[in-house]
Nucleic acid binder design. Structure first.
Length: 113
DNA sequence: TATTTGACCAAGA
DNA sequence: ATCTTGGCCAAAT
């Protein structure tokens, strides 16, 4: 676990339920332009999958979406199955998805102000 | 060391 | 709305 990676997860933990953030926003807050690397961190390390009913979510990977409001990926991939899991988690928290995009994206976006 | 590969991004065509 | 292009960064090979 590299330092930057760890910081990324710590930061991600601060994203409140019902909001989402982006790879870019995370990277920016971390002081790097490596938004792409942030994707690597999500893909490689974090939990494969967190049950929908689990109240002890630690690192909410599902709250990270692409900067245009589209979903990005989940559980190491961007297949129908994994994305539907991601959608389920988000819907459960009050974030609705239509056509693989977050509804009212600007309002839901959490930018670490 | 050097190359390749992404859960990416922005700007053009 | 879709596709390409060039740029970005860290890990893995």
């Amino acid at each position: 676990m590299t330092p930057l990676q760890k910081k990324t997860y710590e930061l991600l933990k601060t994203v409140p339920k019902g909001r989402v953030t982006t790879y870019k926003a995370l990277a920016h807050k971390l002081g790097t332009r490596g938004y792409r690397a942030v994707g690597q961190f999500m893909r490689t390390n974090p939990y494969g999958f967190i049950e929908c009913h689990d109240a002890d979510i630690q690192v909410p990977c599902h709250r990270v979406v692409a900067s245009d409001g589209s979903l990005g990926g989940f559980m190491g991939g961007k297949t129908e199955e994994t994305l539907s899991k991601k959608i389920a988690l988000l819907e459960q928290e009050g974030v609705s998805i239509v056509s693989n995009k977050v509804v009212h994206f600007p309002e839901k976006l959490y930018t670490f102000n």
